[in-house]
Design a protein around this nucleic acid. Structure first.
Lengths: 215, 215
DNA sequence: GTCTATAATTGGATAGAC
DNA sequence: GTCTATCCAATTATAGAC
């Protein structure tokens, strides 16, 4: 018989409809562990992190972690899931006010700000995908694909209206995402986030998508 | 007493002066193992690859690998070193003919083509940096910093001449590199490389760096 | 240089008291 | 829910024959 444990994160994932705003939950012990683990994973790599290391970082013994997570992989999954699930809420911006330029600009801003806020978790989610179980990896990947598809669609709409100039909206969407996600590899805490946002709106909207600012 | 083994890759690294063309070596058994390992690392992750798995992929037993490498980490290091050392040769293009635009265009082309040729090794070198020993990681990182610095310098030169329009050459160099390196995460073998090169020259030179093609 | 066999250690996970 | 103590599986790496 399976003992009673913390909720399976898979269940949480199933409840969230892409495009819906994720619920703000109260900060639990689980979250605290996941965050400490993310910091450790980011610095030493998932594989080089022992359960004892993670436990120490949060001030308990290795065995106690199993009251909050079934396994080490589940900790990683919780991190990766959060970093792919939460951004789905930002996709509402693509149905918001203005045309494709304003909408996508809003999404880029939100994406970069969120990434700056959760730099380590974001890095871990990107880099350690291959450490997830196939099932968990699939769930995370599906979210990512949906997010990318939505961006491609705005780009396509903008291209049809003549505000973007692209050869292939799919390829451009990839470029925009790679550009933004690259940030998590080198961002430091002392970076000016507003400046960062400005730069990346410029790189993506005016750069990759060749939007001409009308004067 | 240390037994006689394959050359320490560190020694190879020390011989190469950044900016010099790396020697073309005859294809050794070591290279064969490293390539097979890279494919396995790319698919399953470095940590999930056992020496037995790598050995099987190349048609031998686990113990036999130790005739070619001192450790599993050394295999990874050989891969990572090759993927950071070889591109240094392309930096010669930055001292070549034409102005900053032509020179950097040439480098982007070379970079993307090289990346397409060695997609798996490139991905592994990027993603598994944290699995290297601190010493090895430092060597690889130093090469990368030098490469990035050289790109920043051409961008700065182009900006001074008015052919590029950038706020901060350093930040632009990062964006250009992130954009290109992102390719290794999603590239498939059936991709049209010429098309890819055209797209990424456009994304970087005309996009990120805002170079206006004079008509 | 490759093999079989095995040493040695790490590290995820569990048992059961408190 | 946290602890101590421990199990046990996996796996890097070595020994020594061929």
């Amino acid at each position: 018989m399976e003992p009673l444990r913390a909720d399976d994160p898979t269940a949480v994932a199933a409840e969230v409809v892409p495009g819906r705003v994720a619920q703000e939950r109260p900060r639990t012990r689980r979250d605290e562990i996941a965050e400490a683990a993310a910091r450790y994973f980011a610095e030493h790599g998932y594989a080089n992190a022992g359960m004892r290391d993670i436990a120490e970082a949060v001030g308990m013994r290795g065995a106690s972690l199993y009251n909050h997570f079934h396994s080490k992989e589940e900790i990683l999954y919780a991190i990766a899931l959060r970093m792919t699930e939460d951004p789905q809420a930002d996709l509402l911006l693509l149905d918001g006010e203005g045309g494709p330029v304003q909408r996508l600009t809003g999404l880029v801003e939100a994406h970069v700000r969120r990434l700056a806020r959760h730099r380590v978790e974001h890095l871990v989610a990107l880099r350690e995908l291959s450490a997830l179980t196939p099932e968990h990896r699939r769930i995370v990947t599906d979210y990512r694909k949906y997010y990318q598809r939505r961006i491609r669609d705005v780009i396509e709409a903008g291209a049809r209206m003549g505000v973007f100039e692209v050869r292939d909206a799919h390829q451009s969407a990839i470029a925009v995402l790679d550009l933004m996600n690259g940030i998590s590899w080198w961002l430091r805490d002392d970076h000016d986030v507003d400046q960062l946002v400005d730069d990346y709106v410029d790189f993506t909207i005016r750069g990759v998508l060749h939007h001409q600012v009308r004067s």
